[in-house]
Amino acid sequence: MRLGLIGFGNIATTLIGLLQNGGLVPEGLVVQVRPGCGDKVRAELETRCPDLAAEVVSDTDDLLAARPDLVVECAGHSAVTSYVPLVLQAGIDVLVVSVGALADAALQTELTKAAQQGGARLILPAGAVAGVDMLAALGAADAVSVRYRGTKPPQAWAGTPAEDALDLAALTEPATFFTGTAREAARCYPKNANVAATLALAGPGFEATEVALVADPAATGNIHEYDVEAPAARYSIRIEGKPSTGNIKTSVTTVYSVFREIRNRVGPVAI
């Protein structure tokens, strides 16, 4: 498989390591990065995986010209807006890590149309949360409710509106600083609320998914808890994910979720 990446930060580099360790090194790799970053990324790729046929580009046309079988977006909400529609229209499947970008209803519609026009698939991984398969199945019913609570260490909320509500550095106990819908959470906390967006898309939608965000000085990782009530089942899930190396805002389980999607595409058995 030829793999494309949009972005080459913590998620992309961790993913490449997982692919190498799992014996799933792609036949070819093309990475789209910001203009001016190419030389640095080429040098890093040569160090990490000298035997991998890798190409680094800074333009989406060059990414498409490489004809990857799958493109993984791991560069943030703006990358979803700027590049993903073009890739889908070209008939190439895209796995979007920045799921929260779809809180923009117009963008969600645009991506859906682009996938239909190109005959491609927009793939939304489970990311840092478990049980999305059951929620998506139960979502066929009308009466599904989801309540989500996301807890992270105070420093994980630095640079977000949480700083306006709390003195993060002085916290001595858990503090809830946001309650609202998944759409509001994804818009206000784009780097922290992808889980809320994923649950909304799998379940009752952005407006009907209730969200609470918490800063807890005792938290050693990123904790995701949610309750589901549906006619066919009721369940609760709690995941304490370890943060990625170099990015406390992202759970490392997010990268494992992307790895699973790739493994299911190339392996003889999908699970």
Results as ranks from 00 to 15, higher is better:
G221P: 07
V214W: 00
A185P: 12
P204L: 09
G203K: 08
F178N: 09
L199K: 07
L168A: 08
N192P: 06
A230R: 10
N194D: 15
T179K: 14
T160A: 01
A162G: 06
Y226E: 05
A200D: 07
V195L: 00
V195C: 13
R187I: 15
A200G: 09
A175S: 13
W157Y: 09
G159W: 08
R183D: 03
D216T: 04
N194R: 00
E163G: 09
E207C: 04
T198K: 09
L171I: 04
C188N: 11
V211F: 09
E225P: 08
V195R: 02
E225A: 14
P174T: 02
T220I: 04
P174N: 03
E207N: 06
A219E: 11
T209D: 05
E207Q: 12
E210V: 14
D167Q: 13
E229K: 07
T181Y: 06
A193G: 09
I223Y: 00
W157E: 03
L201N: 08
K191P: 01
T220G: 14
T160S: 14
D167S: 12
N192G: 13
A230T: 06
V195H: 02
I223R: 13
A165E: 11
A185F: 08
A219T: 01
T176Q: 13
A208H: 15
E210I: 05
A170W: 00
A219S: 14
T176A: 12
D216C: 04
E184F: 04
V214S: 00
P231R: 02
A215C: 10
T179P: 03
V214Q: 02
P231M: 01
A170M: 08
A185W: 06
A200T: 07
A232P: 11
A170P: 03
R187T: 15
G203N: 08
Y189L: 12
E210K: 15
L166Q: 03
P204W: 01
N192H: 09
